[in-house]
Every structure is written in C-alpha cells, then in structure tokens.
Simulated scan of single mutants.
Amino acid sequence: MTSRFPRTARVRARADFDRIFEQGRRQATPRLAVHWHANDTPARLGLAVSRKVDPHAVGRNRIKRALREVFRQHRADLAAGDYVVVARPAARAATREQLERHFLNLLRRHGALPVTPVPGTMPPAPDALASNEPDPNSP
C-alpha cells in the first residue's frame, strides 16, 4: 500500500456516511468523535467539519488537512473498515499535534490501531508471571 491518499480511500457518498453513523461504533473526546464501521474493504476516511466548529473555511480546511495527513500516514496499519471523523468546536483551538494525538488515541480505543509501547518502559509481564497463583517451582 502506498502512502498516497487516493479517492478510493475516501468516504464520499451520503449513503455511506449514514450507514457508518447508524451501524458503526463511536468513540469521542472533547475535540473529535470517530465512527468506525468494520468491513472487508481497506481503510477509508470521511470527514465532517461543520461551520459550528469554525465559521471560516480556512480553519475548517486546516483541521481536515491535519486529520487526512494522520490517516494517510497510518492507513496501512489500520483495521479494515470505514472511519468518519466528526470535529467538535474545541478542535478549532487545537494544534496539529493535538489533533493528531486525539485522533490516534481514538483509533487505539476502537482497537483499530495497534498500541505501540512507549520507549523506556518495561515490557508487559507474561500471563504466567502476572497471575497471583504461586509458582510451583519456587521454594
């Protein structure tokens, strides 16, 4: 899969948006809401940024550009399905980095994007060691 963002990777039809809103799962933060409808097609993105979010087109386009770029960069890692991101009024004051962080966190909460470990932290304990049962081999 290339790093381009072709038309086939976009949710464009009104019927698709309606289907995703009705049948998809939603996760939200104060700045963004992500609706995800899992299916067999490669990941596609739809954006909804209304005038309530920012009355100026340049502000709405800034938000859409930032979200599109994050999606483009992570599309190969995402679970198959259709995603619709709905910006909320608090997104207007968010920086590009904040929008990226919120979007990626929502994708991880959906389980659509694998969780990456934070460098410098300990790896998770294996199931046998994490249980509270005593080890039969220990004295």
Rank of each mutant, 00 (worst) to 15 (best):
S3C: 05
S3M: 05
R4G: 13
F5I: 02
R10L: 10
R10S: 10
R12Y: 05
D16V: 01
D16E: 15
R19Q: 15
I20G: 11
F21K: 12
E22A: 15
Q23R: 14
G24M: 04
R26H: 13
Q27F: 02
T29C: 12
R31L: 15
A33P: 03
A33F: 01
H35E: 12
H35N: 14
W36A: 00
H37P: 04
A38K: 11
D40S: 14
R44G: 00
R44I: 00
L45N: 12
L45D: 04
L47H: 14
L47Y: 14
L47V: 03
A48W: 05
V49S: 12
K52G: 00
P55N: 06
K64R: 15
R68C: 15
Q73E: 07
L78T: 02
L78P: 08
G81R: 00
D82Q: 11
V86W: 08
V86I: 15
A87R: 02
A93R: 11
A94I: 06
T95Q: 05
T95N: 08
E97L: 13
Q98E: 09
L99Y: 05
R101M: 04
R101V: 02
H102P: 00
F103G: 01
P114R: 06
V115W: 14
V115Y: 08
T116I: 03
P117A: 07
V118Y: 10
P119T: 04
P119N: 05
G120R: 02
T121P: 02
T121M: 11
P123K: 07
P126S: 14
D127E: 14
S131F: 03
N132K: 11
N132A: 11
P134Q: 02
D135C: 12
N137D: 09
P139Y: 07
